[in-house]
Amino acid sequence: MREGKRLAVTPLLLCAAAVGVVVWAHKGADVSELGVLATGKLALRVREHLALCAVSTALAVAVAVPAGVAATRPGLRRLAPPLLFVANVGQSVPTIAVLALAFSVTGIGFRTAVIGLWAYSLLPVLRNTVAGLAGVDPAVVEAARGMGMSRAQVLRRVEFPLAWPVVVAGIRTAAVVNVGTAALATFVGAGGLGALITVGLDNQRDRILYTGAALTALLALAVDWAIAALAELGRSRR
């Protein structure tokens, strides 16, 4: 109930804050600043940023959730440690290095940034999928099997629903971290709110820098809210 109320109030607060940031950015801005901070330009940067995060997080989920499921199947349990190791490497190498590596393969642009972000967000999703499934009470799984559910039915009807909150928490972490990390995408020419931050830094325009930083932070909160809301919706539908 309290979670529900929080979910309802948060978007209003976030919208108000975004409007506040834009108003502040425009108030007393000079012509060159307005060239970067025009509402249309800001919207474009936000869209770029969101696209980077959405695509990379979706791809990470598409790879890491099935991998996590596979690594918790009996007989394939040995897969879990090496998989987690690879994902750990993906996360512990600095993002900028991952981006540089991807850059050397795919060159400049959206694709390179997505690859970098994707590599970076595999770990939280994989780790939580494995932890969520491993945390399901073995007695519940045994009861399900003993009643004649096939392995696929046990996974779909019992294990996955029970692991779901933990899996979502991993996706949420990955997506929110991605919003922050995507600010680096500008270095491989993929735009996003990071472009505002670099322009602001390079030209010593604090107004632009702060606007980029504030919008990035608000976007992170918005993404966090959106995933929580989707998860809540999915839960009450079941």
Binding site: A139, V140, V141, E142, A143, G146, G148, M149, S150, L162
Partner: peptide
């Protein structure tokens, strides 16, 4: 087939194993 077999046999365990969701 074990899946078919089990649907015709009731199974109760100490930990009960009710589906909590």
């Amino acid at each position: 087939d074990p899946v078919i077999l089990r649907r015709g046999i009731g199974y109760v365990i100490q930990q009960v194993g009710l589906f909590p969701h």
